[in-house]
């Protein structure tokens, strides 16, 4: 049966399909950043769950960062809080950091 580009990739990544419902889709690469990730780490911590495959995650701080004097972190204290909170988390020790 002919398939679309989307279907070719989707079908290879379906781990399980719930009858009449959604599928469990395998994710090859997970990108995280300083704004929407801290809460997720907190959730894992509260439930005592570890990051399953840290090697599949690439972390970048970009949403809050200043665009002048980036080496002077004290200049953006308010922005630095979530960046520190997410990237100093012990769960992230084996996540690959990436320059912006």
């Amino acid at each position: 049966m002919p398939k679309t580009l989307f279907e070719k990739i989707w079908d290879r990544h379906v781990v399980r399909t719930i009858e009449g419902g959604p599928s469990v889709l395998y994710i090859d690469k997970h990108l995280i950043h300083e704004v929407t990730s801290p809460q997720a780490f907190q959730g894992l911590e509260q439930r005592g769950i570890e990051v399953f495959r840290p090697a599949q995650i690439v972390a970048t701080a970009d949403h809050n960062v200043p665009t002048i004097n980036q080496h002077l972190t004290s200049n953006y204290t308010a922005s630095a809080i979530p960046i520190r909170a997410s990237f100093m988390s012990s769960d992230l020790n084996s996540v690959s950091p990436s320059p912006v």
Binding site: S37, G43, L44, R53, D91
Partner: peptide
């Protein structure tokens, strides 16, 4: 979304309905 970020961190999988194309 953030709760899905947590789901992927925990399982490397995501519950998704197939979209229309």
């Amino acid at each position: 979304g953030t709760s899905e970020v947590e789901m992927v961190m925990a399982t490397q999988c995501l519950l998704q309905s197939k979209p229309r194309l």
